[in-house]
Design a protein around this nucleic acid. Structure first.
Length: 955
RNA sequence: GGGGCCGUAGCUCAGUUGGGAGAGCGCUAGCUUUGCAAGCUAGAUGUCGCCGGUUCGAGCCCGGCCGGCUCCA
């Protein structure tokens, strides 16, 4: 052998070439090449990201779906964040990576899997690795695999090792520790390049057991055995290209270099910056794919993971010395490197970079704020002479303000302070506990639904064509998970927990694609069942509800009837959703893609991508568009056609949705603009847009950064909304006695009047009669759209919901009225002044005592008068009282400094006075305030005031 | 889904058993200077996020809602 020659030829093996070779090799072995599933499989609630190649085949393995093929091969985009701390530090760890795999669903097993793996690795036509560079491991009890490797393939026993269940079993340690369900031994293949350590490149999983309970004898053979293998693309490429880390392979090194350039540093493998650049490379690649699939950084679930990945990478940049967004500049390189296999990335490069840039800027701002908080914390530590940063404090700062502990630590080091990582970890653990845990659904779990799936696979959906049909009861499930169970029959009426019924076919729509499930009735011989919701579990439709009368048994024939009134309302809302989507893209641009939607009876919620709020004018234009689309009476059609054909016709496709092939395409048009709406959609629709009836947008709001939400109504609910809006505006106009169009002006004027009255009252000035703005008589007619904008505008001015405007205006008017009354009262009592008060003063020794009522005086004025009196007289005690309406009295007392020194207190003085009035009060020694609820006792109270101050001064 | 923090002048924020809404920057005017930067003096600007409760009295206490930030799962 000439290793140099081999090496040279291997060096030419590019990553893209390896991927292609793998897939075509298994195609020659009868495998169907299946495209990579999405990275964020929203169809699978048990995971946030696709963790392995087998994920998209879960149901295939479990026999829950009808199989179109029994052998498949894929290159799957994957993401794992479990070992996130190791990324960049070790040669192999990634968050985002690609996994090559071949799968058998009850088809071939161990023998073929091992033979083909060997052939692919060693045959000159494929990878052509020298056999002596390969070694394998098997599970200690899997002599069958060991025999195949040794006797059939010819691997010497010296290169076959036996491993424990924690290493060579899937799931790890399943035999002794569980979980129950399908599992099996694995066999790993290692490659040892000249001068390098052995590297695991391929794991063959032989799922052949069903685990039932604890050992012994808990592994039962599966009737149908499966093969699930995984070859790490990056690590195998690294081995073939003879580089020391995955990050140096042909598709990753250019990203590392781009990162180095953007960060303005030189890339060195063994350096802190080297680790940082590799981490940046990994994270920006992961985020590019995630954002491409419309998963934006956010507060929940996968969105949160994306956010955390981005922030980690930004923090690395920050510690390198960057202060402005930079990750976004690496995105084009990522796309360039990955576009060979994933050309769709090119279509969204700009948007992806934009989203990343925004989040980066956001985080730099968070860091800035954090720096101040960290400095404050150092100040406190200096005061208390501590030299170690309290981990709990750091965790608190992180949890509350997002201050990264790494940042805290490095600044602490600069101040020569230690950092308590143990305390930090502990605090974070406590926080995790406090935040609660999420229960994961275990693969291969044995719920009653799963048992049904094994037998029946699917319910036929008839609801596109009919709303009533005869069907057979396949299963009745009662009780709450995990204690739910299948029943042969049920007769209990009035049970509290809903029962779930599975039928062989049904007109009921199961909740999916944002559309809620149908309600209705199942009727059979002598029984009646109320369906309150319909859900889908896999391809089974589950009718949830209550038995109303009779006895229902498995195998019974039922007449299933959907509540058609509600169904029609849902159809209106769903078709209107498509029209709205279409109009949004026309007015805002093609980026206004659906992010999520919910369709109920005559009610719809639509989330879409848009960076800024939609203006009222845009909303009006969008509403008008939809309304005229409705008026156009365009035909609504649906057809089932191949995915590729639908794409060609320009159907809108959404990420994160798993489209079957063929797909169902819903078309409407031609619409008012002459274009058509085409969406892939499984929902129920109208046959003509005219049937939508009325359409009304009732709100537009932000739901997370870069995403807006519109809520709208259709049919009667929309009409009712129109009436309510019109009525509210008319009522407001009447209250303000102005024309509807002038409501905003009138509201502004009213607010101004309220403000100036408030000011007048508190300043003690005289009332002035400013005429309000001249408004025309209430006769003009507004179009509905104008009326809506007008009312919304008024609502904005008053900071209340549009429909709450009349109420708010009414209360404003009455407030203004009462202030005017108060002003008038004060004017009637004549002007108040310190001199005038002095006229009624009495003397107690050297002290001037003023106890008086100051009608209509607000608190502020009373204080001013007291201050004036204190300035005029050397020794003075003042107590003023003013009625507020018929039920309240306000008292304010103040005394001069000499009296305070003589231990006289305004607070103590005012107490008994307030008590006389049925109130209480207090304050500082020099100035006190109190109130009472019985104005009629004011004269008596003033007597008490005089008496009390006399006693205090004399004492 | 759950935890924490924040919402006070145009901006950044302070507001201490609940008792006169503040500072700095910015803004306007005047003064000073040959001019600029700046300096001095005076002044204006607030539904204290919204709604309700407790209280004689709430920016402050309690409850609900809205908005923003943040962490955990």
């Amino acid at each position: 052998m000439a290793p140099e020659l081999t090496l040279t030829s291997l060096l030419a093996m590019k990553t893209d070439e390896l991927r292609e070779k793998y897939l075509s090799f298994f195609e020659t072995k009868g495998h169907t090449r299946v495209a990579s599933d999405v990275l964020v499989p929203t169809w699978d609630p048990s995971v946030l990201f696709t963790p392995a190649g087998m994920n998209q085949f879960k149901d295939h393995f479990l026999g829950k779906v009808k199989l179109d093929f029994t052998r498949a091969t894929t290159c799957q985009k994957c993401m794992r964040t479990g070992d996130i701390d190791n990324v960049g530090r070790t040669p192999r760890h990634h968050t985002f990576f690609e996994m090559l795999g071949n799968f058998s669903f009850g088809d071939y097993f161990k023998d073929e899997a091992i033979h083909w793996a060997w052939e692919f690795l060693t045959d000159k036509k494929w990878l052509g690795l020298p056999p002596e560079t390969l070694s394998v491991t098997v599970y200690k009890d899997d002599q069958q695999a060991a025999d195949i490797w040794h006797e059939k393939i010819g691997v010497p026993t010296s290169r076959i090792s036996y491993e424990e269940e924690d290493e060579n079993f899937w799931p790890a340690s399943a035999p002794s520790q569980g979980p129950d369900g399908v599992c099996g031994p694995c066999s790993e293949i290692y490659y040892t390049a000249p001068g390098r350590e052995a590297l695991e490149i391929w794991n063959l999983v032989f799922t052949q057991f069903n685990r039932v309970g604890d050992p012994p004898d808990n592994l039962r053979p599966l009737p149908s055995k499966n093969i699930d293998t995984g070859m790490g693309l990056e690590r195998t490429a690294a081995a073939l290209q003879d580089v020391e880390t995955n990050f140096h392979i042909d598709i990753l090194m250019p990203i590392v270099q781009a990162a180095a350039e953007v960060c303005g540093v030189k890339y060195e493998y063994h350096s802190e910056n080297g680790r940082r650049l590799r981490r940046i490379t990994d994270h920006v690649r992961a985020c590019t794919f995630a954002v491409h699939e419309n998963v934006y950084p956010g507060a929940n679930k996968e969105k949160y993971v994306v956010k955390r990945l981005l922030r980690r990478a930004v923090l690395d940049g920050h510690q390198i010395g960057l202060r402005d967004p930079f990750l976004c500049k690496i995105v084009p390189t990522v796309v360039e490197m990955m576009a060979g296999t994933y050309p769709e990335l090119k279509e969204t490069t700009e948007r992806v970079a934009g989203v990343i840039e925004k989040e980066e800027a956001n985080f730099f701002a968070t860091i800035d704020g954090g720096l101040n908080r960290i400095e404050q914390s150092f100040d406190e530590m200096r005061k208390e002479n501590r030299t170690t940063v309290d981990g709990h404090v750091a965790a608190d700062l992180y949890q509350t303000f997002g201050v990264p502990p790494e940042l805290f630590e490095s600044l602490a080091a600069e101040h020569n302070l230690a950092f308590d990582w143990d305390g930090y970890e502990q605090a974070m653990l406590e926080h995790g506990e406090a935040s609660g845990k999420l229960t994961h659904t275990v693969m291969g779990s044995k719920g009653p639904i799963d048992s049904l799936k094994q037998v029946h696979h699917k319910t036929d959906f008839l609801g596109y064509d009919v709303t009533e049909a005869s069907a057979t009861v396949l299963g009745i499930i009662a009780g709450k998970a995990p204690n739910d169970h299948l029943c042969d029959k049920m007769e209990e009426i009035g049970h509290e927990d809903p029962v779930r019924i599975v039928l062989d076919k049904t007109p009921f729509y199961g909740e999916s694609g944002g559309q809620v499930g149908d309600v209705g009735k199942l009727m059979g011989a002598g029984f009646e069942f109320d369906v309150i919701d319909t859900q889908k579990d896999g391809e089974l439709f589950v009718h949830i509800g209550h038995l109303k009368s009779g006895v229902m048994s498995e195998g019974d024939t039922v007449q299933a009837a959907v509540d058609t009134g509600r169904r029609d309302a849902i159809r209106r809302a769903h078709s209107a959703t498509h029209l709205l989507h279409h109009a949004l893209r026309k007015h805002l641009g093609d980026h206004a893609q659906q992010q999520g939607s919910k369709v109920e009876a005559d009610w719809l919620r639509f989330d879409f991508t848009n960076l800024s709020p939609v203006t009222p004018e845009q909303l009006a234009a969008i509403t008008e568009d939809v309304t005229s689309d409705v008026a156009t009476a365009a035909e609504v059609k649906w057809e089932t056609l191949p995915l590729a054909e639908a794409r060609k016709q320009g159907a809108m496709m959404l990420f994160g949705e798993k489209y079957p092939d063929p797909v169902r395409m819903v078309s409407m048009g031609p619409l008012s603009a002459g274009t058509n709406s085409r969406e892939l959609c499984g929902g129920t629709h109208l046959t003509n847009t005219k049937q939508v009836g009325a359409f009304e947008i009732i709100s537009e709001e932000g739901v997370s950064a870069g995403t807006r939400r519109i809520v709208a109504l259709t049919g009667q609910r929309a009409e009712q909304q129109v009436v309510e809006t019109t009525t509210a505006l008319d009522k407001t106009a009447k209250l303000l006695s102005c024309a509807a169009s002038q409501v905003p002006e009138a509201v502004t004027a009213l607010l101004a009047e309220q403000r100036s009255l408030k000011k007048l009252l508190s300043s003690g000035g005289a009332a002035s009669d400013e005429p309000g703005p001249k408004l025309s008589s209430p006769t003009d007619q507004l179009s509905y759209q104008q009326a809506k904008i007008t009312l919304t505008e008024a609502g904005r001015l008053l900071s209340v919901a549009p429909l709450a405007v009349p109420e708010r205006v009414e209360s404003l008017l009455s407030e203004v009225e009462s202030m005017k009354r108060q002003l008038a009262e004060r004017d009637a009592a004549g002007p108040l002044s310190a001199d005038k008060l002095l006229e009624s003063a009495t003397k107690i020794g050297a002290t001037t005592v003023v106890v008086a009522e100051t009608p209509g005086a607000p608190q502020n004025l009373m204080r001013q008068l007291i201050d004036q009196l204190r300035a005029k007289e050397d020794s003075v005690a003042v107590l003023l009282a003013a009625r507020e309406g018929d039920e309240k009295v306000t008292l304010i007392a103040g005394i001069s400094k000499d009296l305070q020194q003589a231990k006289v207190s305004a607070g103590k003085w005012i107490g008994p006075v307030a008590k006389t009035l049925g109130g209480g009060g207090g304050g500082r020694p020099d100035m006190a305030q109190a109130g009472g609820k019985q104005p009629e006792k004011l004269p008596e109270a003033l007597e008490v005031a005089l008496k009390t101050i006399k006693e205090m001064i004399d004492a």
